[in-house]
Design a binder for these strands. Structure first.
Lengths: 164, 164
DNA sequence: CTAAAGTTTCAATAATTTTTGAAACTTTAG
DNA sequence: CTAAAGTTTCAAAAATTATTGAAACTTTAG
């Protein structure tokens, strides 16, 4: 396979995969493009390569920056802004797990805690309490594990996975 | 908070959370309802409680069955079908990771492998190979870890998490 | 076999999410 | 300060995804 074929295939696949994980396809494709770029790209280059509108590129770049996986850069002597992605995949995974934890696990834990203290001792209420309790317990474990992972040293985690 | 308030809040929250993970809200809500039910529910009961059409309930029930987290049941003396969800949260997590692995990680690995063998020795091609290689490596690790997790004994995994 | 009960399908519709593009805004060079 | 270059915003349009509901289909009791 030649380079540009491979690159397009990857950008497409990354977009599709991320879609099924609740991430906007355009955002994932911009990310894939930056991941494989040898140097920072400007909004114009992204628009050009992915055939997207300026507005779309701008919004999704900001979202990627919000996720902490893309950085804004300035090149000396250039007025334009350039963008580059975290190239280290482990660092990327850590950052994504940090953000998903903050954005999704923690709100879930908050709701579960709220809902946990249900009044009434009907059979339904008891079953509800039991399931919510288990879920709450499980979420706390996942939360803890993600926290550890997101703070962990790459090699330490690598070794742990090997031990599995 | 009283029982039905709590239950509705949970169903709503579960739907919203799952949406941000690429799972249809209706599907997540049906799942939440079955999770907290004391006994299997019929399609009619689900329609009634969640105010959804029969078609929607039927399609999403089938999807949940496809995920392996809801089972079809027959009650003796009843002609209707009833549905119940896996109540064990660990088992649920294992089953979901098993399925996501099969549906998403494995296709990704296949694409990465395909795209990995890129011809050409330009700087771009080399950078591309490097990033894809790292991703491929990482995906293989995740795949292996999910495989272990999905086959693991609950207590073994629990202890492992504690050690973290 | 027949009819009632129940389930599935799917084209049409509705809702949601994404994308566009042009106007408004900001920054900078001269 | 002015104008060119660049960036951001956001209402409207397009695309995608989810939902409905009624017809077709299947199963079962009698």
């Amino acid at each position: 396979m030649n380079y540009s074929e491979a690159k397009n295939k990857f950008i497409e696949a990354w977009g599709t995969l991320c879609s099924s994980w609740g991430i906007n396809k355009a955002m994932a494709q911009i990310h894939a493009l930056l991941l494989t770029a040898t140097e920072p790209l400007s909004a114009d280059e992204i628009m050009e390569q992915l055939q997207m509108s300026r507005g779309n590129v701008n919004m999704n770049l900001r979202a990627l920056i919000g996720w902490g996986i893309v950085a804004r850069e300035r090149k000396i002597g250039e007025r334009k802004e350039f963008f580059s992605a975290t190239k280290d995949i482990w660092e990327l995974a850590r950052q994504v797990s940090r953000e998903r934890r903050r954005r999704e696990i923690e709100p879930l834990i908050r709701v579960l805690d709220e809902v946990k203290k249900v009044e009434g001792k009907s059979e339904e209420a008891k079953e509800f309490e039991k399931v919510i309790g288990e879920l709450s317990n499980f979420s706390a474990k996942v939360d803890g594990a993600l926290d550890k992972f997101s703070k962990s040293d790459k090699n330490w985690f690598f070794k742990l996975l090997m031990k599995l």
